[in-house]
Simulated assay, not measured.
Amino acid sequence: MRSPRTGEPALRHVCWAYDDQGAFAAEAERHLLDGLAAGERVWYVTARPDDASTTRLLRLPAFADAVARGAAEVVPLSSAYASGALVTASAQIAAYDDATAAALAAGHRGLRVVADATELVRTPAQLDAFARYEHRIDRWMLTRPFRAMCAYDRTQLGPAVAELACLHPAANITEPQFRLFAAPPGVGHAGVAGALDSDNRHLFRTALDRADLQPDDGELVLQATDLSFLDHRALVALDEYARRRAAVAVLRTSRSAVARLVSLLSLSSVRVEVGP
């Protein structure tokens, strides 16, 4: 799969799974240098601030110069995520909000972070808490000049990486084929892209629960124009999710067949709006 260009405006929040530390270091460098070129303050957040990858980064003239003038910093993981081993979404978002405000006050255009969060998702409880945080901060990013590349070591975390990747608008891996991410204010509660099939239907349920979408006026609006395939079991899961929240899930799609499928399944808590 072609790697997403993390410097593109649409890719504010990228999941980067890696199997090789050197390859990740090269991608992190590119992402951080893109941020400096855009006038942003950049942070490299790592649990290993003394390892070879960090040393290599600090030897880059552009990054070393940025460190000297306060535009770049290597931040220990324990400092950036001060809430501890189990990340609390509200506390962590507040911390990044403060850091972004400080970057703006210092004359930068925003804050860009590359964070290797592998150590924060090792246990089931950590994974669940961090996945919930990933969606919450994705929503927060829509209104703040903040970008992030969240990195995870696939050799250590295995299939758990897919549970995190699916809650980002962009990732460098294809599994689990779908993405559930925050929609811009006034557009909807979430966007859904990719393919929802029988293989990932259980993860889709989990992703919905972790996103914890809150209805407005009895509706949960999902933008699904970039959804290429939708299995009937995913529609049933969405119907159940909406009913638990006493809401109707409004699925906006360009596929008229989805409306017919909803009718055939008699799903009373899903409404399809077909458009371009």
Rank of each mutant, 00 (worst) to 15 (best):
F229A: 14
A66M: 03
V75E: 11
V250F: 05
T6E: 08
T100K: 06
R252Q: 15
P9G: 05
I93F: 05
E119H: 03
A182Q: 07
D128T: 15
P185M: 04
E40T: 06
A117V: 15
T54F: 00
D51Q: 12
L264C: 08
G7N: 14
D209H: 12
R5A: 14
L222P: 00
H232F: 14
V75G: 01
W140F: 13
F204W: 15
R147P: 01
A165L: 06
L167S: 09
L238N: 04
D239W: 04
A101Q: 15
V87I: 14
D212Q: 05
D231C: 09
A247P: 06
A129W: 02
D197H: 06
S79R: 15
A183Y: 01
H202Q: 11
A80I: 03
A10E: 14
A38Q: 10
L57Q: 01
A26F: 00
L208R: 12
R41N: 04
P76S: 11
A80F: 08
R41I: 07
Y18D: 02
P61K: 08
A47I: 10
A160E: 08
A224D: 00
V42R: 05
C15S: 11
P49I: 12
L120C: 09
S90V: 15
L238S: 06
P159V: 05
A151D: 05
A23C: 05
L104V: 06
R136G: 11
A17C: 14
A101W: 05
V75F: 04
A64P: 03
W43A: 13
Y81Q: 07
R48D: 15
L77P: 03
L36R: 01
D153I: 11
A117E: 08
R154P: 01
V187T: 08
R210E: 03
R252S: 11
P124K: 04
A99I: 04
Y81C: 08
